[in-house]
Design a protein around this nucleic acid. Structure first.
Lengths: 223, 223
DNA sequence: CGGTCAATTACCCAATCGGGTAAGTAGTCA
DNA sequence: TGACTACTTACCCGATTGGGTAATTGACCG
């Protein structure tokens, strides 16, 4: 039985904590101590040696603050994830602004918790993280959804006609006037006329600008 | 005290359920019955009359299946959210493929739960939803994060030089060769030469195609 | 039935684009 | 030092682009 316990102890999910606030760092260490199912194998006030530390201590999870002296937490995530992609990293910060949220995610963060998260939720989230989930505070989840919708909504307007959208699509796909004319079975002059109208409607003066605007405003979608 | 209880009862979070599987529909209704803090004010096997039903019953939340006869759940969300943006809608489905997840979110869903969610988690998620969060199953959250990173990663490659990226950026922003030459303080011929090299590296043959490729592969980012 | 609008074609013309060729300078790396 | 690469400029030339103007057809609307 003692042997089994030892094995369990060895198998416990190990955690590194990066947090420059000493009191909070200690609180977290305490919270993730005995009986939580986790083992904190290291805590650090900055990310300056994160690569070496993660390499040496081989944690399963990393809890990462953002606002730290020296290398910030976002850069910290990038370093850890690019070298140890299997280590799960969760942000733990007061920041709830779009840019830091999205930069963190893009840097490779696997979760994002605000510091007002209750201890119970925090523990729960770390278990979810260990299980391959992507735990995040409700507010963050909502921001992510919002941003998602934003990115994929079509600005439409410019009220292009159906034919104009068709012509524009061909242009975006790299066709010359002549090629478009062929594909649409009309004369080159017609294509030219359509594009002239399109340029006016989009308030641009050349093809490249039109393509940029069409893609930027998702009038035309490239898959 | 009885008065207070009555007020609480009146204020309970009201829910509509759209689910074509009769047994599951009844199970959910039972789960969200007495003591859960919710009140199910209607359940329906399809979305065909969703607009009228939501208008009449004025729910706080809607639980929405995807695979239903007639109008599907994704279209259902779109209808509800476009007419009643304040009603929170959560998807509840077995589907975990990217396209259905993302279409649902873009259609306006406020959360996404898989049907293997435990009753406890389900209740918990609905509370989170009512509180303005965006609850989702761990697997979904992970997919969303993945997709996020995908969308914002720069494909790079094509190994354009710094100068070439600079020139390309100007092109994408709608500048003619001459304008680029001015902004970069070089001759038009130089610009032309650079673009010639760029076109080769991107495997395209004209400016519009280059712009499309640059934006598509996020070599250049337009904000 | 006349008016409006999308779609179509034609012609003119200047400017721009894009390919080819050639060659010079500067910096890095081995 | 010599190979290599990025960056630079120049010239030639044909094709493409884009603006202007004008006119015809068919559909839809009041």
């Amino acid at each position: 039985m003692t042997g089994a316990l030892l094995i369990l102890a060895t198998m416990a999910t190990t955690i590194l904590i990066y947090e420059d606030n000493t009191r909070l760092r200690q609180s977290l260490e305490l919270l993730l101590g005995e009986g939580s199912g986790f083992h904190v194998s290291g805590t650090f006030p900055d990310c300056d040696n994160a690569e070496e530390q993660v390499a040496r201590l081989e944690p399963d999870l990393v809890v990462m603050d953002i606002d730290m002296p020296g290398i910030g937490g976002i850069e910290g995530v990038r370093i850890i994830k690019s070298n140890f992609p299997d280590v799960k990293v969760i942000m733990h910060t007061v920041f709830d602004d779009d840019s830091r949220i999205f930069e963190s995610i893009c840097a490779g963060a696997d979760g994002y918790l605000l510091k007002n998260t209750s201890p119970v939720k925090f523990i729960q989230s770390l278990h979810e993280l260990a299980d391959g989930g992507a735990p995040m505070s409700p507010f963050i989840a909502q921001k992510v959804f919002q941003h998602f919708r934003q990115q994929n909504k079509t600005t439409d307007s410019f009220n292009l006609t159906g034919r104009e959208k068709e012509i524009l699509e061909h242009l975006v796909k790299g066709n010359s006037y002549k090629m478009i004319a062929d594909k649409c079975s009309v004369s080159v002059d017609t294509v030219k006329k359509h594009l002239q109208n399109i340029y006016h409607k989009l308030h641009v003066s050349c093809g490249t600008e039109a393509v940029a605007k069409a893609l930027q405003h998702k009038i035309i979608r490239l898959d």
